[in-house]
Design a protein around this nucleic acid. Structure first.
Lengths: 330, 330
DNA sequence: GTGAAAGCGCTAACAT
DNA sequence: ATGTTAGCGCTTTCAC
């Protein structure tokens, strides 16, 4: 059922039908009513493809994340979804997992989206080059400005968060007993957090920590457990800054088996403040990253860019903040 | 840059360009090469709207969930995303939150999607009627078959899961000390789980539990805490089946403050087996719902339906299974 | 093997 | 206030 059918049913031209939908003031009330009746009677819905072909717009935004699973991305998506709704857009979501098909961005329907929010967590020069080629409005999440020159970005001030956490730990534990247990070595977030950790220690103790005090692994519970196993001997009276909350809980878990309690026998701060951190006992001191805001900011920036492609490039920086709970006090 | 530009650059007609893209065998190798060179040189990408207008297909699937936040939906989405990728589709995701604008489905871009996976967790006759009107292929998640007559559905056998959990609890705790702490009273999952709980008790004890032993609230940590507060006096030596893992942890949390330990002083089983359940101490005995499979099945069913609109309606039923961890043994 | 031309369903001038 | 018409960019007969 097309606009043609409606026009015939209402005894008007297709232009008139189009008008009552897009510019009702141009149509006499009587005709408008006739047309609307016909529309309802036939259950007519404008063909989105035909509309898109003309307007060159779908009001759909693409969101590409490394993974769409877990509290972290889930929360980010929530913010993006909410903001998109406000702005009258929908979200085409997909993960970059398994898209090692080399070629293009993993969105089959890339052509449909009015803009693209892309999270980049590790160096990927090829991808960035591709982005600059592509005409689609784009905002990059997470990649530090270095990478995103000329592209709108949303970044979290991980350095500030890690610094705050480290300084907090230093109040409880001497500098030479502080460790950083990060995620992947190449991950932007982990890199920045590690660097800020090292700087904060250096500022306090006059010298950076041993290399052995800064470890890298994956953003997983298992890695946290393993690290705790490997450092069982020195965990007592230590201070630990974890790369994220999952790692932190891995440490808690293993430490308990060793008879050590976070917040009493050693101090522990996580990162992200995912739901986990406030549900689990002991409740985790952690650096709250405003994930929903990140998602919302990305969408908001993207919509701005779509509306004005010529606007100056902007970088939104969101600041995390330390939440003190049970693992840094007894 | 359109197909026209490519055609001119390659010195052929637009039909030929279209052919090398869609039916290369019809084109001589030499011409094909010329065309491909032009395509690369110009960075041509076919206009998805124009393609959609003809093919009446976008290879995009709409996924509408009550909420896209949290472990539960996140895991479901992961399965859907993965299956969609396999099948060559993308996912347009949105939550039904805040879409009380009454009117249509909350997807602005409903017209773009080739199919719709819709999760319905509470009775909503209006919505179901709307679905039957709409021609878009649809699969409904979660709503029991009653609701989805004539529509493909994916449902979890909550009754089986709740029965297994209840029978497990009955091994540790007498029937008259068993409670069910559910989610919202109207929620399909909670309703089914409560009913199966009651049946299992009746089968074992010869009589259904008191009404007071079956409580409804929300799927939240806070509700679990509150319930535990309200039942502090009778929690010792009790058995609790929670409506989901969050509720279960709410109970654990409050119980600990009361000096009661799950798995020792009372028995506790959660529902869903979200990540939480295996990370947190004490690790939760819980009914594992194959959420990723639910998402994947929905997509798979949807694609089948798109390919053959006349196929008989099918209902996929997935079976959860009890995972015994620390909260039902000491 | 390739080109010309007819639409797909819609919007937006341009006429009337 | 309403109708006519020219595309939007593409695929697909139908000719040659």
């Amino acid at each position: 059922v097309s606009i043609q059918d409606v026009a015939e049913a209402a005894g008007v031209s297709i232009a008139t039908v189009s008008r009552v939908l897009n510019n009702p003031t141009l149509v006499s009330p009587r005709t408008a009513t006739k047309v609307r009746d016909a529309i309802n009677a036939l259950g007519y819905v404008p063909n989105a493809f035909a509309q898109g072909l003309i307007s060159k717009s779908s009001r759909v935004l693409g969101v590409v994340l490394p993974d769409i699973h877990g509290e972290f991305y889930s929360e980010l998506l929530r913010g993006a979804d909410s903001e998109a709704r406000h702005q009258g857009y929908s979200l085409l979501v997909c993960s970059r997992l398994r898209s090692a098909d080399g070629s293009l961005l993993p969105i089959a329907a890339l052509g449909f989206v009015d803009g693209l929010a892309l999270m980049i967590t590790e160096p990927d020069e090829g991808l960035l080059r591709l982005l600059r080629t592509h005409a689609t409005p784009t905002v990059v999440l997470d990649a530090e400005a270095e990478a995103g020159a000329g592209i709108d970005t949303v970044i979290v001030d991980n350095a500030a968060g890690a610094r705050e956490a480290t300084e907090h730990l230093l109040k409880h534990v001497p500098a030479d007993r502080l460790c950083f247990v990060g995620g992947p070595r190449d991950n932007f977030d982990t890199k920045t957090r590690a660097a800020a950790f090292i700087d904060a220690i250096a500022a306090s103790a006059g010298a950076p920590p041993d290399d052995a005090r800064v470890a890298f692994g994956t953003y997983s519970f298992e890695w946290g457990r393993q690290w705790a196993s490997d450092h069982a001997a020195s965990l007592d009276r230590a201070g630990v800054l974890a790369g994220n909350d999952e790692i932190a809980y891995g440490v808690v878990h293993r430490a308990e088996e060793l008879g050590l309690k976070a917040g009493r026998d050693f101090m522990l701060v996580g990162f992200d403040d995912t739901r986990l951190a406030s549900l689990v006992r002991p409740m985790l001191s952690t650096v709250r990253v405003p994930l929903a805001d990140v998602g919302a900011a990305a969408v908001s920036l993207l919509v701005k860019r779509i509306k004005d492609r010529g606007a100056p490039v902007s970088h939104v920086r969101l600041t995390p903040r330390l939440i003190v709970r049970e693992t840094t006090r007894d």
